[in-house]
Amino acid sequence: MSSYVAPGDQATSGLDRRTELREFLRSRRARIRPEDVGLLSHGRRRVPGLRREELAQLAGVSYAYYARLEQGYGETMSAEVLDAVARALHLNEEEREHLIRLAEPDRQSATQAVPPPQRLRPSVRHLLDTLGVPAYVVSRRLDILGWNRLASVVFGDWGRLPLEERNLARLIFLSPEARDRFADPDRTALSIAGALRMNAGKSPGDLYLSALIEELSQKSEEFRRFWARHEVSCGSVGESVRMRHPLVGEFDLVHVPMALPGGAPMRMVTYHAEPGSRSEEALRMLASWETEPLR
Rank of each mutant, 00 (worst) to 15 (best):
Y73C: 01
A189Q: 10
M258I: 10
R224C: 15
Y63R: 14
A59P: 10
S220Q: 07
M198L: 14
P185Y: 11
S240K: 15
D9C: 00
Y271N: 05
L163T: 13
S62V: 01
R107I: 03
L207Q: 10
P275A: 13
A30C: 08
R17N: 06
A6E: 14
P176M: 05
L294D: 10
E231Y: 12
A259W: 10
L25M: 14
Q10S: 11
F173R: 01
R197P: 07
L91E: 01
G194Q: 03
V37G: 02
P293L: 02
N92E: 09
A86Q: 02
T291E: 14
T19R: 15
A64F: 03
L102Y: 07
E274K: 10
L142W: 04
Y73R: 15
E53K: 00
R28C: 03
D184F: 05
S78D: 03
L91Q: 08
H245L: 05
G156A: 09
E274S: 13
P176W: 09
R267H: 11
P162Y: 11
R140H: 15
A79H: 13
R170C: 03
L82R: 06
V5R: 15
L15N: 02
V237N: 10
L89F: 01
E54K: 00
L128M: 11
R181E: 06
R170K: 15
S175I: 04
D206G: 09
G60Q: 06
V241M: 12
G194K: 05
V153A: 09
A228I: 01
E70I: 06
M285K: 05
L69G: 14
W158P: 01
E165W: 09
T19S: 07
G159N: 07
T188F: 12
D186I: 02
S220K: 03
